[in-house]
Design a protein around this nucleic acid. Structure first.
Lengths: 121, 121
DNA sequence: TTCATATTCAACCTTTTGGTTGACGATCCG
DNA sequence: CGGATCGTCAACCAAAAGGTTGAATATGAA
């Protein structure tokens, strides 16, 4: 079972998808409108939107024949909490980080170490 | 030319690499020691470390025959600033986000829209 | 009904990613 | 010196990612 963070980071690793996120920051948009500024097919953009949706970074709601895309700002919370553990950031909430870390490590990822010595704190 | 964020997010999308980051949170480590808990070859882990290094999430310093890996906490700053634009986070610094966004959009990524209407605020 | 629009699906292709193995260069130790 | 250890390199491989095109499905409008 893949971690949520896998999907979220992978989704954000693509510049097209980050650009889409920024576009949606201004307003909700239909798939066709999202696609318009890009030099690629509508099908390709549709796939990008699917990836963002599966990562729960956006939601898509169909009204009539138009599918509206909107940001899901809560999704960035997991990432921000994760990131905060690493920076020497003012807003560091180490407790939240620890709790998140336990859940993340407990999810049985195949990429995880077989030995979790470094995990018991 | 690839954005820094491409490399950073891509690096963090892999659970092995995130686990490595968490291990390094506790202490600097030699490559062999980083590899020890994982069920994969030393060469594979060495590649993961190279990817983290190129993303500037860690640094590697060779002393004798041992290469020490250590976290580079500043690197997470770019991500955190980027993320903050999306969440409804207390620590939202919209100015920093806007400046970062301009630089990111200005970097001539092939994945970027040809039209930047959504960018002029 | 018929036509146009909105979006996805399916098949396909190329490049990238994440892993393997074996050989190699560098360094420490006896 | 000779042998063990540390780490990378090179060649290779399978699977996933990101794109294409053309056909299919829904819905809206005339």
């Amino acid at each position: 079972m893949k971690s949520d963070l896998d999907a979220i980071f992978a989704a954000l690793a693509d510049p097209t998808r980050r650009a889409i996120m920024m576009m949606l920051l201004e307003d909700d948009m239909a798939v066709t409108d999202v696609a318009q500024p890009f030099e690629m097919s509508l099908a390709a953009v549709s796939k990008h939107l699917t990836i963002l949706t599966r990562a729960r970074l956006i939601t898509q709601e169909k009204r009539g024949r138009v599918k509206w895309c909107k940001l899901e700002p809560d999704a960035t919370r997991a990432v921000t909490i994760w990131m905060q553990g690493f920076g020497q950031f003012e807003a560091l909430d180490l407790d939240a980080f620890e709790r998140f870390l336990k859940r993340e490590l407990g999810s049985g990822d195949s990429g995880q170490p077989k030995d979790d010595d470094y995990n018991d704190d």
